[in-house]
């Protein structure tokens, strides 16, 4: 990928992020922050590649820590976001279940 092309991707992705969030209701701010926190868990794949190419004890140690942290970001982000969104129900859905 050339530097210029990467710059284009960067710009378009920045606009996309802004657009996707711009009309979000306040009630979803916390789950959405958590959801975007999960999405940057993609850092895991970078950490995997870094560890995969690491040589010598220093690089291997840092790479290992990187993958542990990256996996924590991805999995933790997913679990808490999913738990929060699981609870959002409208009145209709509540009545349908009839549990309460």
């Amino acid at each position: 990928m050339t530097g210029m092309l990467a710059l284009y991707i960067f710009m378009l992705a920045a606009f996309t992020g802004y657009e996707v969030i711009s009309r979000v209701p306040v009630i979803l701010h916390t789950p959405l922050m958590s959801g975007s926190n999960f999405v940057h868990g993609i850092v895991l794949v970078g950490a995997m590649v870094a560890l995969g190419h690491a040589q010598g004890p220093l690089e291997l140690t840092i790479g290992f820590i990187g993958v542990v942290l990256g996996a924590g970001n991805a999995v933790g982000g997913y679990v808490v976001t999913e738990r929060m969104l699981e609870m959002f129900k409208s009145s209709g859905q509540n009545k349908n279940k009839g549990a309460h």
Binding site: A6, I9, F10, A13, A14, F15, T16, G17, Y18, V20, I21, L32, S36, N37, V39, H40, I42, V43, V45, G46
Partner: peptide, 11 residues
């Protein structure tokens, strides 16, 4: 990583 990171950065 570039796309996901940037989207999260701006959002």
């Amino acid at each position: 990583m570039i796309i996901a990171g940037t989207v999260v950065g701006s959002a």
